[in-house]
Each structure stands twice: as structure tokens, then as C-alpha cells.
Amino acid sequence: MSEKALSRFVQPVAVPGRRLLHHIPLKFVRKKVAGGGGRSVNSEIPLIPFIDFLLCIVLFLLASFSASGELPIDKTIKLPNAENVIDMTDAPMCAITGTQILVDGSPAGSTRVIEEANRLQRVEELFNILKNKRELWKQLNPGKDFPGVIVLQVDRKVQALVVKSVFQTAAFAGYPNVSFMVGRLGKQ
């Protein structure tokens, strides 16, 4: 067998590396099309996990969202704090500031009158409002037992005389289960 006939089986040994486009004689063209050989400085932001994260936050916030604004607390009232407390309940709110008594935001009497009288007394205006509320509840919920729960928001400086007068008035008006709204204090 001749040497020429065997030459097609001979594999040339070459240095490993890029093969394509290296025949172009211009160096700057070769560099451009070959990508320069360096690591790319462009990077993709992983958007899909980011969107998943945002969706989780949105779902959590929507689940804990309250359209009613939750507990309307009078800004002039500074509530005391306590440790042995229970969770809030949905009930009429009676706020006692330094000067006036409010039921669900409407005026229902003055604390000055009670302080000046210096004796336990029934607050007539408050009594009538609470009694009307109770009658309305009974009309709207016929056949059901009236829960008789009222929540008092009392400023920490209000005298016990005023608190006891409002407490007793609420009981007379059919709200014997009185709760005092307080801040939640951590256990010591």
C-alpha cells in the first residue's frame, strides 16, 4: 500500500482552542466576534423568585387587612396597660376622656358634672343612648339573648368616681358585662 493512500487516516495533532472565525486576518474583528474571551459583565435578575416573594407578602397583608380600621381609639385618651388581659371583642365603645363621655364617637355626658357632684350617679344621657342601642339590637336580632357587653376606653387619669358612675349606668341600661380597654403588657 502506498504512503499516499494511507494519508487520509492520518489525524493532525493541533493545539486545543477556538477554531471558528480565527481565519479572519483582522485582529479587532476576531476579538469582537469571539466575545473578547472575558467573563460577561451582564447578569440577569432572577425575577420569578422575586415575584413569588412579593405575592407571598401581598397574600399575607391581604389576609390580615381590616377594612373597618379596627378599634377606633380616641386620640386624647391614654390607656393604661395590664398583663392579665383577654382579647378584644366586638361591642359598643364608650370613651371617657378628661372632660366628656362618648358612645361610639357621639357625646353622651360630661365627666365634670359627676366630679362636681362628688357622688356616684346615673348619667342620664349615657343611659338613654345605651338603652336605645339595646332596644335596636333586640329589634335586629329577635329571639336572641342580648350579650350585654360594653367596652370602656378610660383615660388613665380619670377619677374612679367617674368610672364607677359610668360602670353603674351601663349596668342599669342592660350592659352588665363591662370590659376596660387596656394596652397589652408583656409578662415580667
Binding site: L71, A82, I86, V151, P176, V178, S179, F180, V182
Partner: peptide, 8 residues
Amino acid sequence: MARINADA
């Protein structure tokens, strides 16, 4: 907010 009970 929380509450503390009292009974009339």
C-alpha cells in the same frame, strides 16, 4: 389592645 373584664 386588649381588655380586662369586670362584672356588674
